[in-house]
Nucleic acid binder design. Structure first.
Lengths: 230, 230
DNA sequence: ACAAAAGTGTTTTTCTTACACCCATGA
DNA sequence: TCATGGGTGTAAGAAAAACACTTTTGT
């Protein structure tokens, strides 16, 4: 360990991979850069960390600036620091992924950034190492989604089990057996069936469910683990 | 996204949680600070990132300065950036954990830092948020150790299956059934029995095994996953 | 009545777990 | 011969996977 150096201070950015879900697809919120270099190209939303700001707070600020949403689900997943990754100046980026309700985010979307939701499967070329960041974020999300019930962050308050299944199929990019999926969910008593049905997808209608965070906290304490393993 | 700010440059440190294994115990390599503040207190080994240095390279340098070892197993696990975490100046720390051969590391240990191996179960109070970093590193190691064969990094080239079992018991802090453990290992054809035995622990002797990285790379490509789930 | 989504049940197979048991050998 | 660590085998049960089947209802 050495003493505190006089120079060697660096730029520290917080970049956010913002996930949404709509029409059975996982989407990313990208922005078009309106400044040089790479003006007009696609990029992740980010910002520089302020002197008196915690990392998590910086990430929340970045998401809020773009979507207007506060206190969204955020997870730090990796820090990127290769020497040449930013062509302008040495920058270290702390990567966060956010899970947001796409509908609500779209409603309040800031017009300053020319942002657009893009299906994960049809991403345009991204600047710097942002594609690498997206890949790492997706891997982290997949891990997290098998161990913690985070998927609900991407859905409305009330959702059908089929919607939930489609979401997990999108996250893992593979089909899931409906019977087995539902049997697993049936055991989770922090998933509560409401008394409403969704008739938009079928004549018969599908029950709306909701996630009960408090119940989940209990289940977690009692060692009953969430596990959805496709 | 904003333009590159003139100020707001920050100190960026790389801190390493260095794990070793000896006498059936997981140990951490700690150093005694020889400068203010907190002179004489225990801390993790760290250093400031240099302008022209990749993050991973910085972590390797930190480990090498202390242990003399090059190219050790290193994994970035989390970045710590709370505003008040360093009492001297705002510092962001990228946390890495290292898995080293404790014997070899001890042999070349630098005398500049007054370093000491300490059992994970008997850690002294650490400066700043270093205890929090240790906790997070251990959690990350546990995850990694169930999904990837990283444990071998903590053992000599050749090891017995009982040694390996003791290591995993130490990592997860719980007993493991020998029969079941060995049956799992038997399936991994990247674990090769040598023609030597260890007679130090028993009269009968235990076969030495070695890990074959190339074979593992193959197995990995073919989708045969490592999985040791205590 | 039939199409189509919603939802349930059942069978097969695979993996865990717990534990009993044999082996080799120096003292 | 017996204590000890090394190592194998197996039966019971739990969980995952595959898939057939029923329900509901607008058209």
């Amino acid at each position: 360990m050495q003493n505190y150096p006089a120079q060697d201070r660096l730029l520290l950015a917080v970049d956010c991979i913002i996930f949404g879900f709509q029409e059975d697809q996982l989407n990313l919120l990208l922005i078009r850069r309106d400044f040089e270099p790479h003006r007009g190209e696609w990029s992740l939303m980010g910002g520089f960390l302020r002197r008196a700001e915690n990392l998590d707070a910086g990430a929340q600020r970045v998401v809020k600036d773009l979507t207007g949403l506060q206190d969204v689900y955020l997870e730090q997943f990796h820090t990127f620091g290769k020497v040449g990754r930013d062509s302008v100046e040495r920058t270290i980026s702390v990567g966060y992924y956010a899970l947001v309700n796409q509908k609500r985010a779209t409603a309040q979307l800031s017009e300053r950034y020319a942002a657009r939701w893009t299906p994960l499967t049809e991403l345009p070329p991204l600047i710097f190492d942002h594609q690498e960041m997206v890949d790492a974020a997706l891997a982290a999300l997949r891990y997290r989604a098998t161990h913690e019930p985070v998927g609900f962050e991407l859905l409305p308050e009330k959702f059908t089990l089929t919607q939930l299944q489609r979401l997990y199929e999108a996250i893992f990019d593979q089909p899931i057996d409906a019977g087995n999926f539902r049997r697993r969910l049936r055991k989770m008593d922090y998933l509560e069936q409401t008394d409403e049905k969704d008739f938009s997808e079928s004549r018969r209608g599908a029950w709306y469910y909701q996630f009960l965070p408090d119940q989940y906290a209990d289940a977690r304490r009692n060692g009953i683990p969430f596990l959805l393993k496709p």
